[in-house]
Design a binder for these strands. Structure first.
Lengths: 185, 185
DNA sequence: GGCACGGGTAGACACTGTCTACGCGACCAT
DNA sequence: ATGGTCGCGTAGACAGTGTCTACCCGTGCC
């Protein structure tokens, strides 16, 4: 099959994991399943990842990069910029539900290396900056940012888990607009 | 040891599961661990629960009852009532993080019987009623309820997973007050 | 030409959830 | 009293999992 892309095994494992996560969901993202797809023995990852969760953390890191890139691509004057960012956040959760789920499974990722916690911090900082920019001279900009961020995140999770089937009936964009504006006045 | 409370095994399994969930967390809430604590063989639950997840669903049902009772105990004129309910919601997540986590692990509970989905619906309805009551003559009461509910839920999850260490530094009550009021105007 | 060694293999182990055959004791009918 | 049924729990097996360990084996270096 002519010159298979034979990158170092580490990258191949991560990529296989990403694909498997999208295709089969987090529940089937087994260490052994990843090795099967990669075509190596089940002990191979150990050379690069001390534990299964460490591999999961590496997979999650790629997702965090994707999410980060999407959010930084948000554009518009203050208010519209926030609405755009919020919609992109929800779009990520909708398009990559498995990855979104993994990103917040701290029981799997905690202490698994790759310090995702600190890596996701600038992501929130970006959000907070947008809020501060859209709502200058507010006494508690961080609280406002937390309020909006948690709102979008809660919306995304409850939508992803279909906890609110109601959400299917309502159009998302006006809801997000309303939410963002609620937090800005 | 004189008249051990020998309720039917079903209840003992559920109770053991609840205790284990609080003590050891969801990650250790194994079917076999529950049977060990109950003092029966690992095959015993099968008589009452076709699968491990079905037992988890029964455990989650007790948590949903607790949460429901807490929310319905919320009091106060419209706005304060919502603030109280929100704080109770956050209190539940803080006091029983394992149960809170389980309640939203739809990957475990889905299709496991006990139709938690429909049972949790009146809970949201209660929330929506409070919102409609506090904000009469609004064109889209359900959207407002969704907005507020997702906000509180997102705050609870991000706090439970300590995704925002920032939250440790800010006092929760004023933040919740601010959030509720943001959604009511 | 011998040798170390990085990198992957393969088997074992404890543990999990599920399935199946078995046992046992209480209750009932004769 | 005796036999039988049946609810309920036991015990063993099985495939699958993550982790650990001993083992190769080919490549590059002296």
């Amino acid at each position: 099959m002519s010159t298979v892309t034979s990158s170092p095994l580490r990258d191949r494992l991560v990529q296989a994991g990403v694909e498997l996560l999208e295709e089969e969901g987090l529940g089937n993202l087994t260490l052994r399943a990843i090795t099967r797809r990669t075509g190596v023995s089940h002990g191979a990852p150990r050379r690069y990842f001390p534990t299964h969760n460490a591999l999961l953390a590496a997979i999650a890191a790629t997702g965090l990069e994707d999410l980060s890139a999407r959010l930084q691509a948000a554009e518009g004057i203050p208010e519209e910029g926030l609405i755009d960012a919020a919609l992109r956040y929800l779009g990520f959760a909708a398009e990559r539900p498995g990855m979104f789920e993994l990103l917040f499974r701290h029981d799997l990722l905690e202490g698994a290396g790759g310090n995702l916690r600190s890596r996701s911090l600038p992501l929130f900082q970006h959000f907070a900056d947008l809020v501060a920019q859209a709502r200058p001279s507010t006494p508690d900009p961080r609280d406002r940012a937390i309020a909006l961020w948690t709102n979008i995140h809660g919306l995304a999770t409850l939508r992803a888990t279909r906890a609110l089937d109601l959400l299917g009936t309502t159009n998302l964009t006006p809801l997000v607009q309303q939410i963002v504006r609620s937090h800005l006045r």
